[in-house]
Design a protein around this nucleic acid. Structure first.
Length: 607
DNA sequence: GCCGTTTTCGGCCCGACTGTTTTCAGTCG
């Protein structure tokens, strides 16, 4: 049973208790437990099945005696009795109503207990016959908002992948900068933390002209609905196509239908005072758990931290900023951390997982550290550039090394190379070295890992290559056990340098392989094989939690753009961000090494 | 239901916005 499935069960318990009007802190505890399970890097089910399952689970922050027992119950019996008892009391359709924007548990409970609503269809009915207006706090405007929320139910609950979300955020920032006088502007939230998917965008602005900023935002092209618009914040749904020519699939540009169609995202613009910039940025960047931990540190010191700054705790009812109390810190994130006696940590690792205990700011990998691209495709397989064009582009971007790694024979759809074609291709790469100087061109291959873990070329041919990236492309639904054996066999092969996109997942589209990653990492470490973070925003594979496992195990990491098109080099930042989320330091990433060190490492597997 | 170098009991983030109110409840992040 996957962590996600266990988290869902706990989360449903929380929602159902909420609808029954039970103690809100019990609800909160179950929601927290669900998140703890969802975000846990290891396999919760196998821990729960252990002899001391419940005790081991309790060591995870957010899980206590009761929630640990419920997880053990779920894993061993397939269900939680309490879940079934709650489900008998709460109609299933109500959970869907909770997804509606602007509708929370209190309102759903009113619909249910006072109007007998148990489904979306019932809700439609009381709207249609007007009886909804008899319910408390339900006026014309509320009903209009509710109708809008129903019509975009599926769209508004959808998360979006990091790539398109980043592009849209940059477009909003550019738009506001061009139309209002702005002191500072930055995207906060999960985008700043570099999560692989983003629910909505939080754009923070420091400005002398709040009204101008809000006005510029709500009239921006691509805005399909203004959800709220006040003096210091506004919320809109904005079409992703307002970003630029990056669609959800990373292919052709979205055709602008000129109406409220196409995928959209909620974008919140918040105006904050310049003297509170750091406090607001920190507050709105999160994560929630990180903020809670940080506020705990403030409390320990008799201080209170909010989005306006760090203040002395004086137990007054009115918040300090409203009484014009001078904050102890707030203009920058660093000043707040200093006043709290904690090291400033990069947004990517703010997860409330003990990062406040680190001594000194960790020096994580940065975009500028990358000096080599080790995974690229030419027109020989499914790329759009020739060897020379690709080499020139890599050189232009300042890389000292480029590995050409076209697909192997089993990837028929990608025009994979049969052995004789590969041999000619190797010679063509060698010839291109004469044409493009100032960059080392390596002859490689992205070799398919067959379902049983064998490679797609024989060892003799593999030994002729400078670089071997072994990747799974087919049979991505095989059982975890088979997947684990398959990948271990591949990383243990003496001629393999890098395990490419280890799981083959596509974010929000395809789960990919679900091997026991700890075992794969251990085998990779033992054989000196690097694990790839594929930088494409559709993949980001290895994923962040597995990067952290690999980093802690001392395994080498590669960050590659898997270049098929010149624009793919631009995805590098997403790969680096994912590395940072896994606490990756430059020295553990082979792409940051000097040409000498990198080439030496590659050759070691050829002796 | 969880958690603890100010607590094993008594806390559990809090401010902006909105719509419906006659001073505030609900939602959101």
């Amino acid at each position: 049973m996957s962590n996600a499935a266990i988290a869902r069960a706990l989360s449903e318990i929380a929602s159902m208790m909420e609808l029954l009007g039970e103690d809100s802190f019990r609800v909160l505890a179950h929601s927290r437990a669900a998140r703890a399970v969802e975000d846990f890097p290891g396999d919760i089910a196998s821990i729960a099945r252990g002899a001391t399952g419940a005790a081991d689970l309790r060591k995870i922050e957010g899980l206590g005696p009761k929630t640990a027992e419920k997880i053990v119950e779920l894993v061993t019996t397939g269900a939680i009795a309490e879940h079934a008892e709650l489900a008998a009391k709460v109609p299933a359709g109500l959970l869907q109503l909770l997804q509606l924007q602007g509708i929370g548990p209190k309102t759903v409970r009113v619909f249910w207990t006072q109007a007998g609503v148990t489904s979306l269809a019932d809700l439609h009915r009381i709207i249609a016959d007007g009886s909804i207006l008899k319910l408390p706090r339900m006026g014309e405007k509320s009903v209009e908002k509710l109708k809008a929320a129903i019509s975009m139910l599926s769209e508004s609950t959808k998360r979006h992948r990091l790539g398109p979300a980043t592009v849209l955020a940059e477009a909003v920032i550019a738009h506001l900068k061009a139309r209002a006088k702005i002191e500072r502007i930055e995207a906060a939230g999960s985008l700043r933390r570099g999560r692989e998917t983003v629910g909505d965008l939080d754009i923070l602005v420091a400005t002398a002209d709040p009204a101008g900023v809000v006005q510029a935002f709500v009239t921006m092209p691509g805005v399909t609905a203004v959800l709220q618009s006040g003096e210091t914040r506004a919320s809109c749904r904005v079409r992703l196509s307002a970003g630029e020519a990056v669609t959800d699939d990373g292919e052709a540009p979205i055709k602008d239908a000129g109406e409220d169609s196409g995928p959209s995202m909620q974008v919140d613009v918040k105006v904050v005072p310049l003297e509170s910039w750091g406090a607001a940025l920190m507050y709105f960047t999160g994560s929630k758990d990180f903020n809670v931990a940080l506020r705990g540190r403030a409390q320990d010191r008799g201080l209170t931290l909010n989005e306006y700054g760090l203040f002395p705790e004086d137990h007054e009812k009115t918040p300090p900023q409203a009484r014009h109390v001078r904050p102890l810190a707030g203009k920058t994130e660093e000043s707040i951390c200093e006043a709290l006696g904690v090291a400033w940590v990069p947004p990517e690792i703010r997860e409330g997982r003990g990062e406040l205990d680190v001594k000194g700011t960790p020096r994580l990998i940065e975009l500028g550290d990358i000096q080599a691209e080790l995974h690229s495709h030419t027109t020989a397989s499914d790329g759009v550039l020739s060897i020379v064009e690709l080499a020139k582009e890599a050189k232009r971007r300042g890389f000292h090394t480029l590995a050409i790694t076209d697909h192997s024979q089993s990837s028929v759809i990608a025009n994979g190379l049969k052995p004789d074609r590969l041999r000619r291709h190797i010679r063509a790469i060698h010839a291109a070295r004469e044409e493009v100087k100032g960059i080392t061109l390596l002859a490689g291959s992205e070799v398919d890992i067959l379902p049983d873990g064998r490679l797609d070329y024989d060892d003799e041919l593999l030994a002729e290559l400078d670089v071997v990236v072994a990747s799974p492309h087919a049979a991505l639904k095989q059982e975890p056990k088979a997947a684990t054996e398959r990948l271990i066999r591949a990383v243990s092969h003496p001629l393999v340098h890098i395990l490419g996109h280890p799981t083959g997942r596509l974010i929000m589209r395809r789960a990919g392989l679900e091997p026991d990653m700890a075992e794969v990492i251990a085998a990779a470490k033992a054989h000196g094989t690097a694990l790839e973070i594929n930088a494409h925003w559709m993949r980001l594979d290895l994923r962040d939690v597995h990067v952290r496992m690999a980093v802690e195990a001392g395994c080498a990491i590669a960050i590659n753009c898997d270049v098929h098109h010149p624009a793919d080099f631009g995805n590098l930042r997403f790969g680096v961000t994912t590395g940072r989320r896994g606490w990756l330091r430059a020295e553990a990433c082979v792409n940051t090494w000097s040409a000498k060190d990198l080439h030496e490492w590659l050759k070691k597997k050829r002796r």
